[in-house]
Design a protein around this nucleic acid. Structure first.
Lengths: 168, 168
DNA sequence: ACCGGATCGTTCGAATTTGAACAAGAGATT
DNA sequence: AATCTCTTGTTCAAATTCGAACGATCCGGT
């Protein structure tokens, strides 16, 4: 153990920018969504995810994984959304254990109302701030970062299959 | 309301990579710090911030701003760190209201013990995954993102009167 | 049919975060 | 000095998050 490879100034600059931007952007989006339609960024993500599927529904575990959330955390949020009438639960006939979260009509309506302002703010805060090159570097670089972390967690099982759905 | 400028596939790719990487990296770092020295990523940030000053101390408000944290949140965390003996509070002679958070000897020791493993993981998860160009693009791009958000908040606190009479 | 292990979603308690309200002090104006 | 405004840090209740434990169910091999 000679010495730790500390971060150079240049590396620190990237690391700090990444951490700060993450916190700030998320907070701003959360704030706007709460003010405009009364839901959190987390809840917005759930609605978006559901609306991206053919039947506007998804199983709890599948949803939790897609949102990088814990199962218990999702149970809580789905309960909140259910109280608000934006989502309802549906049990599966073939597997009694399974539960589907289904986007309701009201949920779809709320999403359509929230989306324009949300996307506009995402653009204002980050997307339109970046140059094309920077945006591509982030997509490539952080995409690889994400892939590696997710790969580590689920390395043993074959992870080459994942029916993707375009999400907005 | 003609049309919202939705995100293109390329833009979505960058946005999703950014959000996912933020969540995943932070969670992994938090986990490691808790396992190795029993403190959260948040608390680690406080200790680092304090150790970076000449007298190893900083005022509460100043510290909260540097860490992009709420004042009440910092009060809580400093109390936790104080219980653990890693930080102590010191009141200011010239201003009775002011409180300094001071890094203790034990806090310094813990930081020195935690830092190598932490930095190594930061490298493994993100810094060493990126190419030089990607790292620079992130530093520049996300640095600008951060600067704008912080600038907005401080520059035009009351000047943001948007026409919002009609809800929604 | 039956057992052992894996999976599913929920429940529970503890830790953390947030914003609003608060008490106390500082600073400027009159 | 009296008063008004801003700042400082804490307290409080409510909301959220997490991991572990749980009951229930599914699946494969016997």
């Amino acid at each position: 153990m000679t010495g730790t490879r500390w971060l150079s100034d240049e590396e620190k600059r990237a690391w700090h920018a990444f951490v700060a931007a993450s916190a700030l952007v998320d907070r701003r989006l959360d704030l706007q969504l709460k003010e405009s339609v009364g839901i959190s960024h987390q809840q917005y993500g759930i609605l978006v995810q559901l609306s991206g599927t053919c039947d506007h529904e998804m199983r709890m575990t599948e949803l939790a994984e897609a949102l990088l959330n814990s199962k218990s955390g999702l149970t809580y949020q789905i309960s909140q959304l259910e109280k608000a009438g934006l989502v309802r639960r549906r049990s599966c006939t073939s597997d009694v254990r399974a539960v589907y979260a289904v986007l309701t009509e009201a949920g779809q309506k709320l999403l359509e109302k929230a989306a324009p302002g949300h996307v506009a703010l995402v653009r204002e805060l980050i997307i339109d701030v970046l140059t094309d090159d920077q945006r591509e570097a982030i997509a490539d670089g952080l995409g690889e970062v994400t892939r590696r972390i997710l790969g580590d967690a689920a390395e043993a099982p074959g992870a080459t299959d994942s029916p993707q759905a375009a999400a907005g």
